[in-house]
Amino acid sequence: MTSLSTHVLDAVAGAPAAGLALVLTDAGGNLLASAVTDADGRARLAEDLPPGTCRLRFATGEWFAAAGREAFYPEVVVAFTAAPVDAGGRAHLHVPLLLSPFAYSTYRGS
């Protein structure tokens, strides 16, 4: 089984991005999970992620608008590949997002 989590930080405010909505889909666009980041900007999205290409959509435009802040990106979509796990194994994927109104970066976390 592969689990998935994320951590979103607002680089301008220097704080976690609490209350940001997330949607996880497979390559065919089928909904796998949805969540909202907690007070620390973290969310767990899947405990049994299937292998293959997945897309994690962050609703950044709505989040910035709710805070009365202008933003360039209405959403951030991170596509990644969840590799099959060896027999009996367990893996964890972590997709952090560093966010500002006019830029973002992401990487494979641990």
Rank of each mutant, 00 (worst) to 15 (best):
A13T: 00
A65F: 10
V12H: 13
A83W: 03
P16Y: 03
F72M: 01
D10I: 00
A13C: 06
L93K: 13
A17D: 08
D38P: 04
V36C: 08
G61R: 10
L31G: 03
T53C: 02
A65L: 14
W63N: 08
D10M: 00
R55Y: 04
W63M: 05
G52F: 08
L20M: 12
G88T: 11
A91P: 05
H92T: 10
V23K: 13
G29R: 03
G29Q: 10
V36K: 13
F102L: 06
R108H: 13
R108N: 15
W63S: 12
L24F: 07
A59V: 03
F102S: 10
V76N: 00
A87E: 15
L20W: 07
D86R: 14
G41N: 11
A11S: 14
E70Y: 06
R57F: 10
A27S: 13
G61M: 12
V23A: 15
M1S: 13
D38E: 11
A13S: 12
G109N: 13
A17H: 07
V77W: 07
L93E: 11
T81F: 08
F64A: 12
L98E: 09
E47V: 05
V77S: 09
A46E: 14
Y107H: 12
L31S: 04
A11W: 02
F58E: 09
A87H: 03
D40F: 14
Y73C: 01
V95M: 14
V23D: 08
G89E: 15
V12L: 15
A59F: 13
A103K: 01
E62G: 15
L45Y: 09
L4Q: 04
V76L: 01
V76Q: 01
A59K: 08
R42T: 07
A46S: 15
L22F: 08
A35Y: 04
Y107D: 06
A18W: 02
E47Y: 08
E70S: 07
A43L: 10
A65G: 07
L4C: 03
A59R: 14
A11F: 01
T2E: 02
L45V: 11
L49A: 05
T60I: 08
T53D: 09
R108A: 14
A39D: 15
H94T: 09
H7R: 08
A15R: 15
G89W: 03
A65N: 11
L20T: 02
R42N: 08
V8E: 04
G29W: 12
G29N: 12
T2Y: 00
L49M: 10
P51T: 13
A35L: 02
E75P: 00
L24P: 02
S34Q: 15
L22E: 01
S34R: 11
C54R: 13
F64Q: 04
A87N: 04
R42D: 07
H92W: 08
A71N: 10
G41H: 09
D10K: 03
T6S: 06
A33V: 13
S105A: 02
E62F: 01
A65Q: 14
R55D: 03
G19F: 07
A59S: 14
F80L: 09
F58C: 07
A83L: 06
A18S: 13
T6N: 05
L49K: 10
A87T: 11
A17R: 09
R57E: 13
A33I: 11
V23E: 15
G88P: 11
L20D: 05
R69K: 14
A91F: 09
